[in-house]
Design a protein around this nucleic acid. Sequence first.
DNA 1: CTCATTATTGCAAAGATTTGCGGAAACCAA
DNA 2: TTGGTTTCCGCAAATCTTTGCAATAATGAG
Lengths: 144, 144
Amino acid sequence: MSGHGSAVDRLRTQGYRMTPQRLSVLDIVAGKSGHVGADEVWNQVKIQHPYVDLATVYRTLQLLKREGVVTEVVIGNKLHFELTDQQNRHHHMVCSHCDAVQTLSPAYLDELNRRLQREFGFAPDVENFTIGGVCSKCQTAESE
Amino acid sequence: MSGHGSAVDRLRTQGYRMTPQRLSVLDIVAGKSGHVGADEVWNQVKIQHPYVDLATVYRTLQLLKREGVVTEVVIGNKLHFELTDQQNRHHHMVCSHCDAVQTLSPAYLDELNRRLQREFGFAPDVENFTIGGVCSKCQTAESE
DNA sequence: CTCATTATTGCAAAGATTTGCGGAAACCAA
DNA sequence: TTGGTTTCCGCAAATCTTTGCAATAATGAG
């Protein structure tokens, strides 16, 4: 539906069994325009498949993350996920004060990415990269 | 002892009460050359102050982090901490396969830091910045 | 189709970290 | 000192996420 059919095929080809549980989790994440918390994914999944366990949701999300299908965003102390959009890749800046999320073009990480790879042989997981900090709004609010 | 006395003074000046619990937590972290897990901090603290609660350790570590006295390093699914060394600042790269930690000179983040600040007004918390990925050792091991 | 093999799930429990709350400790002014 | 105020702590419980395990479901060979 939301253009993640190819991901399903790819996962199947890789030997994963695309069970109703997994398909449902992926559908929920793909159906949201932004990021979704793990608990919200679970709540949505349960509407169609009431027996699905939260552990399965977490395991599926980790699997989808590992395979590059979804991107993880750490907001506050909670994990959120969104469908990885290859046509519109981006990273995330999260404000530790108000939990606001801003997106960041991959260009900003290109150089760091290359340098870590070249100079240390370290392959950073830029896809699931979230940088914390304080957004401009909260900075000005703080200094009052 | 380990050169964190000035931090204690500063915290006191800021209005924090430097209780035995807090001093003990700081002492333990400062006494280690590298990073320490929260649970290990607790175990060490309990040797001198057996009644100290784990929640207090966590609260203190967060306080020290907030005030820039210690740096947080996310390793696997656990939080580690080390004394912030202003003379030898560095960030961390953590391998998601083997949990190995490499340090990274601040120079690598300077440009990103400035750009986020300048272009978005976003003040990234580079101090407690940990970037995940796969280290060179695990990369070669993977491709076999 | 049947059997053997392997992957996946639900369930329950463990782990790691955070939070609410009443009491204790620290601080400050008189 | 003493009393009043604020901060901090221990305790217990909650929250979020991960993990072990036995049962179930999917897969592939014969």
